[in-house]
Design a protein around this nucleic acid. Structure first.
Lengths: 256, 256
DNA sequence: ACCTGAACACCGTTCAAGT
DNA sequence: ACCTGAACACCGTTCAAGT
């Protein structure tokens, strides 16, 4: 949804990481308000986690930092730049597996799990990934790790990018929806199972959806698991197995 | 990123499709300004396509319709409701394959292609899919089609949801990034190859990325294709082949 | 039944001024 | 070098009023 920074008419730099005027500011400390870039980024992540992207504003951030709204602009050029910085910061919290030892399957599962956890822990991350270039140091390290793992699979070079896409775009989509669902539950003050039951009930009441849902019911039944979380683990696990089996099949095919 | 409708404190209905006070309004015509819900939705889609979600506002929409900002609120309760309606409307433009005849592989490829095209044609769609419940009639028809196709694969019931996830979350992620890239190109007034070369050049200049890119270069080389579009087709095609191979492998495994 | 105008409570950002 | 206050050009939405 991009953020609301269209009022700037400047030549359109595409990323914080490609420098702006505030680029090298705020690395020191002992300033009047004790502000620096890291503190600002920390507070940004905290606010985004607590209230969601829609409720985040530069003014609220400033209030959180006990500072006037405009002080922040000494350290970052725009709200978009700040969000890009926050995005890269949380990418730094994903543990990267050792890609020089062990089986690629385990490496892939580990990185997929870490990526999914990131998207669930910080639901505001997913739209930002789609919005920015993701060339910050931590995002890059993550991409590098993914590349190395896919290289370890034995996929032919021309298929490695497609392999990365298949796996990590899947995790992205899955984690996006999962994080969003959890967010909605929290807003409604219900746990995931309560919310699920309620949503299902409401939808089912509408006559136009009766028929549609008859089909889905079987499917729900078959998925098994007593809780929403169990169902999700099962689906995620099966999909990852499917992807790994797909990679193995393509590796075989390339040898033939 | 959700839209900015947090100022409403009402009990939080979660979707237009679960009714609001404006639910059954604007189905007629011959009104003073000739307005109705469909015209409003059409104009919304047009504006979103032309200017992007960030530049869309209720006030601009009203101007486009030659009407005062507030007239629109006779037909829709909130901006979020309107976006949800627009989302479902464009879902109606995806051609659904005949799921009762032919090979599931062709059906899957066709629906994946249609979904991808939707995300590329309307880059504003992807964040909205992550934001709303997607229970409008056209979204539901799409999901139903996906379900039927996955059923045709012969996957065991407990794996069908995971199979849908793997395929369509992949397409979602792929189409999101693709649409976003094309949008950026248009904004910069460059074609995709020009923009790609320029972005690569800029990033490569930064010393901290030199090493990182050495690795990627080989990969780029191997992907082949002379244009960005050719590379993308290759990656998308390979990933879909991988997913189909994965489904086939899981079907085999379930028979053992 | 439909549309308008004025107002409210917000935004991101600029700019000149303070210390 | 860092921070502030006031102002500008926007938002989504409410509400009372018009026709």
């Amino acid at each position: 949804m991009a953020s609301t920074t269209d009022r700037t008419k400047s030549p359109a730099r595409t990323s914080v990481w490609l420098e702006g005027k505030a680029a090298d500011r705020g690395r020191r400390s002992a300033q009047p308000a004790g502000l620096d870039r890291d503190k600002i980024i920390d507070a940004t992540v905290r606010l985004l986690d607590a209230e969601g992207a829609a409720r985040f504003s530069m003014r609220k951030l400033a209030a959180e930092l006990n500072v006037t709204a405009m002080s922040v602009y000494w350290y970052v050029d725009t709200k978009d730049d700040l969000l890009e910085l926050a995005l890269d910061a949380v990418f730094g919290t994903v543990a990267l597996p050792d890609t020089d030892a062990g089986d690629w399957r385990e490496q892939l599962r580990a990185l997929a799990a870490g990526y999914r956890a990131l998207l669930v822990r910080h639901p505001w991350v997913s739209p930002l990934i789609g919005t920015y270039l993701n060339i910050g140091p931590h995002s890059m390290a993550f991409s590098q790790a993914a590349q190395k793992i896919v290289r370890n699979t034995g996929l032919p070079p021309h298929g490695q990018m497609g392999g990365i896409s298949a796996v990590f775009q899947f995790v992205y989509g899955f984690g996006t929806i999962e994080g969003h669902f959890i967010e909605r539950c929290a807003e409604a003050g219900l746990n995931q199972d309560e919310y699920f039951r309620e949503a299902m009930g409401t939808i089912r009441e509408r006559p136009q959806y009766r028929e549609t849902f008859a089909q889905s019911d079987e499917l729900m039944e078959a998925r098994g698991g007593d809780t929403v979380e169990e169902m999700r683990e099962r689906d995620f696990g099966f999909a990852l197995d499917l992807l790994i089996a797909g990679i193995e099949a393509m590796v075989e095919r390339s040898k033939a």
